[in-house]
Design a protein around this nucleic acid. Structure first.
Length: 205
DNA sequence: TCCGAGATTCACT
DNA sequence: GTGAATCTCGGAG
């Protein structure tokens, strides 16, 4: 299964070069597409979080560049993949100008195509599909995103984000504090589609 | 050089 | 609800 329109509707570099919270909100409802063995597997983005660089104590970029967070400081439109808790990968979309260190964490997707491949990658036993992609590390596991995908250009042909023709009119968007962070709790930089069953279980204020 | 915390998930009590 | 998986970085010693 391979649709040319998904490639044609790929978001341009300019989309990512804007303000991080604007990009975060506008990513909701769009498609995250992954090409694997010449197949397109994808999900609709239903939950994201903004991380605002050197002024955000919860961000990896807070203390400046390191080898790990290098990609966060690139120009918008690249994928920043980091390894955490000794076993999980998480995917971020780099936003804004080069050197800013801003990114949007992709927290949850609604599966749309390639469900069989994703289930296999996740080694899921039960039938509960709402939990297939309801967390940042689950997405990386299902879409086979790891160290090798850190720094991938989202304007290329491996991983990209596409316009969703059915979601051109913005839906209602909810916001909250971020999940799993102890610093920067005052910022409500998590955005999600309220009522969507594929949003992750973390439901802060 | 060592130690604790971390943008998490899952199995088990 | 609790703990284990065990990488990376920053801060203490």
């Amino acid at each position: 299964m391979n649709s040319p329109w998904l490639f044609r509707n790929k978001l341009p570099r300019e989309f990512y070069l804007r303000g991080t919270l604007t990009v975060a909100r506008e990513l909701l409802g769009k498609y995250l597409v992954r090409r694997l063995n010449n197949e397109q597997i994808l999900g609709m983005i239903v939950e994201v979080e903004g991380y605002l660089g050197e002024r955000d104590p919860a961000s990896h970029a807070y203390r400046g560049r390191t080898r790990r967070n290098e990609v966060m400081f690139w120009a918008g439109g690249y994928l920043y993949v980091y390894f955490t808790y000794g076993m999980h990968f998480c995917s971020n979309v780099v936003t804004g100008a080069e050197g800013k260190g801003h990114a949007v964490l992709i927290r949850a997707l609604e599966p749309r195509r390639g469900v069989g491949i994703m289930r296999r990658n996740r080694r899921m036993k039960n039938e509960e599909q709402t939990q297939l992609l309801s967390g940042p590390a689950k997405i990386c596991q299902a879409l086979q995103i790891g160290r090798g995908e850190n720094g991938t250009d989202l304007c290329g042909g491996e991983i990209w984000i596409a316009e969703n023709p059915d979601e051109r009119v913005p839906r209602r968007i909810a916001r909250s504090t971020r999940v799993g962070v102890s610093k920067g709790r005052e910022h409500r930089w998590r955005f999600f589609l309220p009522g969507n069953p594929y949003v992750s279980p973390g439901r802060p204020a």
